[in-house]
Design a protein around this nucleic acid. Structure first.
Lengths: 216, 216
DNA sequence: CCCTTTCGACATACCGGGTAGTATAGTAGC
DNA sequence: GCTACTATACTACCCGGTATGTCGAAAGGG
């Protein structure tokens, strides 16, 4: 089933499709078991492939993990930058958080792998090439975090947010959202509207964490 | 250095002391590398012991991991139940979040290991005894979560919090706090007052996420 | 239109290193 | 000598990575 092996027609789409299939399976496995406990063989078994195939598309297990991570970061960046970019700070932050929460629920494996973190792998002895990949991913993650920091700064400057340290305030904000990848599990009968309700609650929560208290 | 081997005096304190030493080293290692990537030998090396000693005190690597986890859950329970138990909901929630954040910063290894989660290890094939331990830990974690749910329920009932689903609202709350174990790293010159400032910010954030908006 | 060559995309077999766990022996206090 | 604790030596096993084989599809020439 699926694409026949060896065909080079539709090269535009079928060539990356195998890669994406492996990425999907890897994200599933990493999400469930974590990096160290996931074996390449288990990923292969889920696909009906063998190690030769995986190591044809990816240089190493770390490379595969990084690729999953990179995809998650890119998806996050697209979601955040596309969320009401011209709205005032409060509306924009709400839109960003909503989009972020929706993204996590709809691409759970990728985003959960990303939420597992990179720091843990910085400690293990790595090759120079892996270090470079790691630093690139850290940069991507920091760039996404800065999108939040920027909107918080603007909100504080305009007086619609409390006087907080934007960098510090971004931490619980990201925690509240990223934590979703830990407790959310999709239900069979759940539709987009259900996820939207959850995402709205989460966005309300993080926005409320920055607004002025109702001490009127 | 440290306690001499073989002594049984001060049995009240020295007996658990070795166990606690191993637990501390294990928490450090698990925090840095994760469960699967941490070897018993590396824990032993950090203590100047060998595997024989560790396997005398703990039946298995999982047992050691569970013990770290259990200690974290117990510490969390103590911190949460001791935080302004008789204050009204808003003050109590703020006190709980503050105590929680302080606990994470002051017992980073334990709490970070706990934040790594249990679900990941539920998937791997485990023995029946390990399953029992796992379910006990899940129960402890859920009990702590329910402490937050209860105060949210009370706050909603009294009208001081927004009309939220308490169980759902507890998720971003816990995420905002637990995430601290991911980004916080203690600085040499940092004192209790510095941590308290951070904890106050975090508690303000999660409390603000539940209060009514300032739409006056 | 046919045969041969080349190449992309996998499978198979294997090695080497690391590691959880065990079995056993040793050592210090009571 | 008994008990509590620790060190040493060893085994069985899993897993990442590699070296090599296979097979079908494009490519190319006549």
């Amino acid at each position: 089933m699926g694409a026949k092996p060896g065909r080079a027609t539709d090269a535009v789409e079928s060539l990356p499709s195998r890669r994406e299939e492996i990425l999907d399976a890897a994200a599933e496995a990493f999400m469930t078991l974590g990096f160290a406990a996931t074996s390449i063989d288990s990923i292969c078994a889920a696909l009906g492939l063998t190690k030769g195939s995986v190591y044809y598309h990816f240089r190493s297990k770390s490379d595969l993990f990084f690729a999953v991570h990179r995809r998650a970061m890119e998806r996050t960046r697209v979601a955040l930058t596309g969320a009401a970019p011209d709205a005032p700070p409060a509306e924009r932050l709400h839109a960003m958080a909503f989009a972020h929460a929706m993204l996590i629920m709809e691409h759970l494996p990728d985003l959960r792998v990303a939420a597992l973190g990179l720091e843990m792998h910085l400690m293990v002895r790595t090759t120079a090439a892996e270090r470079a990949d790691l630093e690139e991913l850290v940069a991507l993650r920091d760039a996404n975090e800065r999108l939040y920091v920027a909107v918080i700064e603007e909100g504080v400057a305009r007086g619609v947010f409390r006087k907080v340290d934007p960098r510090l305030a971004s931490k619980p904000l990201l925690g509240a959202l990223n934590w979703t990848s830990r407790w959310y599990q999709p239900r069979p009968r759940q539709r987009r509207a259900d996820r939207a309700a959850i995402a709205t609650e989460l966005a309300d929560f993080v926005l409320g964490g920055l607004l002025h208290r109702s001490t009127c």
